[in-house]
Every structure is written in C-alpha cells, then in structure tokens.
C-alpha cells in the first residue's frame, strides 16, 4: 500500500484535542495529528461537555500549564467540565492519551493512579531522554493496548521532556500492584536501555515515565511524542506511539 493511500485512510480517524487556559502544546499535537498523520482533528474547549463519544476515535490531553499550574499541576483542569465528559468517554472504553500536563491532569482526575511531585532537581527539565517500552513484559499484560501495540517489547524511544513536576509518586503498596498488573508503560532509561538513577530525569519512582489506566485505554506519558513525530524534529520515535494508536483503531 503506498503512503498516499495510508494517509487517505487515516482521514477517516477522528481525534480530539482538549484546550485549557494555559495549554501550550495543543497546536503541536494538532500539527502532528493533522499534518503528519493526516487525521481529522478538532479541539475540545475546557468549558464544553460532549456526549457524542462515537465522534472521537481518540482524545489527546496536550501539555502546557493549564491554569498556570495553580494549586497543583493539573489540579484545576481535572475539575473542569470537559474532564467530566472525558471521564465518561474513558469509562466507556474511549482512548485517551495525556501528555506531560495531560498526564498530570489524568492523575488529578483519578483516571490514573498516583501523583506528580516537583522534580527532584527542582529544575524545569527540558531535554531529550530515553524511555523503554515495558508494556507486555509482564504475563498479565499480554493483551495489546492502543499505545504500544506496534512497538517491540523493550523498544527504546528517544523523546523530549519539558516539565517541572514529573516526579511520579505512588504509595509503595500501589506501586507493586501497578507493576504486577502491567500498568507501567514506560520507564526512563539510557540510550542502551539501562534503567537506573542516572537515567532518571526527575526522580520518578522506579523511573516511571508512562502509565496505563485501569483498562489500558488511557495512558499518561511525561515525554512529548508530538515533538518527535518526524525525523526532522530530531527524532521520529514519537510517531511510533501515534502509529500504534492509528493501527489499533483501524484494526479493532
């Protein structure tokens, strides 16, 4: 199948991007989904609600500083009207990807377990890092999920991070549960895939950089795949995540 045909087919996929006051990666995600992957993309305003869940094949909560990170990163956005709809959408099986601030919002809204603390370094970390796909590493996680289904086990992705509060925290007991149930999607690692404190950019527990929700249809991801969706951007690895989502939707 030639690339033009693939792109033509993609046009039938509808993606939604939420916009909060302070979202600043919404246009980046729009560019990636619309221009790079040729999807049908629309924005979802934070004050609105939506009930036509069938109109969206997946929704991205983009990065940024929703509500200026006031109170806690993501805390206020998680209580906005659009998130009520997104919770319903996710509960009904809808695919939701939260990137960076979107990850924080998913945590604050309870769609994902745990919370984000300030980076251990106290710095705003803005650089390329590596993450390793550990989904499917666990026998409980043999089923495919929308976000990594095209990736090989232990695949290493080079992606940029840009955040101040990405230090993932969860109670010890819950952490064990998350691992044993296969809910950990990505861990920070070095170029060779070694997971260690040295390759942990923010102090996250167990180097966690990506996390699934209860039914594997929701994922929070600290790095920005939309900023690595084409080689010209320095890395095309982010495309692997979006391609997985597209593939999953087409074949489900």
């Amino acid at each position: 199948m030639n690339i033009g045909l693939i792109l033509m087919k993609n046009k039938k996929i509808n993606a939604g991007i939420t916009v909060f006051p302070g979202s600043n990666c919404d246009m980046d995600v729009y560019y990636a989904l619309n221009d790079v992957f040729n999807l049908n993309v629309s924005f979802l305003w934070h004050k609105d609600e939506f009930h036509n869940f069938k109109n969206y094949d997946f929704i991205v909560i983009p990065g940024g500083f929703s509500y200026g990170d006031y109170l806690r990163a993501g805390a206020l956005a998680a209580r906005s009207r659009i998130m009520e709809s997104i919770k319903e959408y996710a509960d009904g099986g809808g695919i939701v990807l939260g990137i960076c601030n979107g990850f924080q919002i998913l945590l604050e809204s309870g769609l994902l377990k745990g919370a984000m603390l300030t980076n251990k370094s106290l710095k705003f970390e803005c650089k390329d890092i590596y993450i390793k796909n550990i989904s499917g590493n666990n026998r409980n996680n043999s089923h495919e999920n929308p976000f990594t289904c095209l990736m090989e086990k232990d695949a290493i992705l080079k992606l940029p991070i840009a955040h101040h509060d990405g230090n993932y925290f969860v109670e010890k007991k819950k952490l064990n549960y998350l691992f044993s149930s296969g809910y950990i999607a990505f861990q920070y690692c070095n170029e060779e895939g070694v997971i260690s404190d040295d390759s942990n950019p923010n102090g996250s527990m167990e180097n966690i950089g990506g996390l699934f929700g209860e039914n594997f249809n929701v994922m929070g991801l600290m790095p920005h795949p939309e900023r690595a969706s084409e080689k010209i951007l320095g890395s095309g690895d982010g495309a692997k995540i979006f391609n997985s989502i597209i593939y999953y939707i087409k074949n489900k």
């Binding site: 603390l117 300030t118 980076n119 251990k120 370094s121 106290l122 230090n167 925290f169 102090g203």
Partner: peptide, 13 residues
C-alpha cells in the same frame, strides 16, 4: 502539607 513519607524537594532545598 506533604505526607511524611513523600519526598519534599523544595523543603530539602
């Protein structure tokens, strides 16, 4: 306040 078992990077600084 942060729970006791939670690391407080600001406090440490």
């Amino acid at each position: 306040t942060l729970k006791d078992e939670v690391l407080d990077p600001q406090g440490k600084a």
